[in-house]
């Protein structure tokens, strides 16, 4: 079953054409990593997918709900429904600093979906426990390490029970030791069949956690394939150059 489809996505910033016709399908339960050189458009693509950026053309579909269709007006209801299908984890967490950890998790569902506080707190406690953050409910983000903040951000995204999670370099703002914590969490989510799209510079991690890897350069998908095959035996010249550059 397709959970997310991007068809012929194009996006320019002024004269700078950043995405030239990107098409991508994500199956339910699939973990897909996007790798590629700096400036290749990975973040821009993910931001389009997360509706934070509007493509110039193309179609975005989320679990059968259209979120973008070549700039035609999407009615508000489907827009909101499409948005509720995914969660996003940012490079620099973007936690709400004035909310406690608990409130970071519960405020949005309480305020957007009007779910009773008791229920949300129970759900949040369970998630935090799972993220290894049991007992930190009343801490404020500034009192947590980067790795802990990122785990709170993942838990916050999961509170809305999204079908698919987008990650933009979830570990690149973290020290290597802290990176490990996040990788563990992502691996655990993968084991629970969570659908995830991860932009990353960590090839080893991408290889280990994903089913499929996409190599992007200059706004196009140059090559995609099974994770181990693409990393260990890339077919395309540019992919090979990129990966061997990393292994050095």
């Amino acid at each position: 079953m397709k959970l997310f489809t991007a068809s012929n996505i194009k996006k320019s910033f002024g004269k700078n054409c950043v995405l030239r016709d990107i098409s991508l399908e994500i199956e339910k339960g699939e973990v897909v990593s996007i790798i590629g050189p700096s400036g290749s458009g990975k973040t821009t693509f993910l931001r389009c997918a997360a509706m934070l950026e509007t493509p110039d053309s193309g179609v975005l579909e989320y679990d059968g709900v259209t979120g973008f269709d070549n700039g035609y007006k999407i009615d508000k209801k489907s827009f909101i429904e499409a948005r509720s299908k995914f969660g996003m984890v940012f490079q620099n967490f973007n936690l709400f600093p004035h909310f406690s950890v608990m409130r970071n998790l519960t405020d949005a569902p309480a305020c957007v979906r009007k779910i009773p506080a008791k229920e949300l707190e129970l759900q949040a406690k369970g998630l935090l426990e799972k993220m290894g953050l049991g007992g930190r409910e009343n801490a404020y983000p500034c009192e947590l390490s980067g790795g802990q903040q990122q785990r709170v951000a993942i838990a916050r995204a999961l509170m809305n029970q999204p079908e698919i999670l987008f990650f933009d370099e979830p570990t690149s703002a973290l020290d290597p030791e802290l990176t490990l914590e996040i990788l563990k969490v992502i691996r655990a989510l993968a084991a629970e069949n969570m659908t995830m799209v991860i932009v990353t510079h960590e090839l080893e991690f991408a290889k280990e956690v994903s089913d499929r890897i996409i190599f992007m350069a200059d706004g196009v998908i140059v090559e995609e394939g099974r994770a181990d095959e693409l990393i260990d035996d890339p077919k395309n010249e540019r992919t090979r150059a990129f990966i061997s550059g990393f292994k050095k």
Binding site: A50, M51, L52, I80, R83, S84, F86, G87, M88, F90, N92, N94, L95, F96, D107, A108, C111, V112, R113, R156, A157, N160
Partner: peptide
């Protein structure tokens, strides 16, 4: 990033501003 996080979590514009 604060606006973007709020947007993805489904807050409306006025909820984002006031909360």
């Amino acid at each position: 990033g604060q606006y973007e996080a709020a947007f993805v979590l489904g807050y409306s514009k006025s909820q984002t501003f006031f909360r």
